[in-house]
């Protein structure tokens, strides 16, 4: 059995699909590729395939990871060249390597993700940079930011997501450059927060009522794992 770990980027054309859509898309591409796929044992065999972290709808990404198991010999180069032919516009494989069989699973590694949100302003809304910075200060100054979590049996519960915002700051704008917010958010099994929720809360602090004139474009720059109590890019060692 061969285990291949790969990285990919997702651009504008494909950013509107969900995590489950991505799973299906990749699995069907793999099945078309003719590579010797490994299936799980049991009643309904499925592909042994995984992403490091679900990518939200409407987010582009620079460096995502996935892994897949093969029943026969496949080289990383072969994997990239054969699979690339089956992937749609908007998805590019950026690397692959063979992983140890007993290495921990990809999703278990991810502890944080870095997003860049860019404010796209059309007509109307011309809020200044300082207003945004002030709103962010207010937001981060809060001890609690409650986010709804729908638990089983549809009981609504609230979780404080403030601790999950590890870092958030605006890049210093130059001349006409758009307003850009960097967000380092906790992710993985210990809980996380959606970047869209953070932005929604930020907009509330602004009491911004312009619905259509401005919106945020989200880009996921990097995934992180924990290493000696520090965050290290997941790409390290790839």
């Amino acid at each position: 059995m061969i285990r291949i770990r790969f990285s990919f980027a997702r651009s504008e054309t494909l950013k509107h699909i969900s995590h489950l859509d991505m799973m299906r898309m990749f699995q069907r591409a793999l099945r078309r590729s003719g590579l010797p796929l490994a299936y799980s044992e049991g009643y309904s065999p499925h592909l042994r395939f995984n992403f490091a972290a679900p990518l939200p709808v409407n987010v582009t990404a620079a460096e995502e990871f996935g892994e897949v198991f093969f029943s026969g010999a496949v080289s990383p180069e072969q994997f990239v060249s054969v699979l690339s032919e089956q992937l749609p516009e908007g998805l590019v494989l950026t690397g692959a390597r063979i992983e140890d069989h007993d290495a921990p699973s990809l999703p278990s590694l991810v502890t944080a993700v870095l997003y860049r949100a860019t404010l796209v302003v059309e007509e109307g809304c011309r809020k200044g940079f300082s207003q945004y910075r002030q709103a962010l200060e207010h937001l981060l100054g809060r001890e609690e930011i409650l986010a709804p979590r729908t638990k089983k049996k549809k009981k609504k519960a609230y979780v404080n997501v403030r601790p999950y915002i590890l870092e958030a700051y605006f890049k210093e704008p130059e001349n006409d450059s758009p307003i850009q917010l960097q967000m380092l958010l906790q992710a993985g099994s210990r809980g996380g927060v959606s970047p869209f929720y953070v932005i929604e809360q930020l907009e509330k602090e602004l009491s911004c009522d312009c619905k259509y004139e401005a919106y945020w474009e989200l880009h996921r720059e990097r995934l992180y794992k924990e290493h000696d109590q520090f965050l290290q890019p997941l790409s390290e060692g790839m």
Partner: peptide, 21 residues
């Protein structure tokens, strides 16, 4: 930009994006 804006706001944007295999 208009279209981008639309797709950013709509539910299930995959309904309108095309570009399928």
């Amino acid at each position: 930009t208009k279209m981008k804006h639309l797709l950013a706001q709509v539910q299930k944007p995959a309904r309108y994006m095309g570009n399928e295999w």
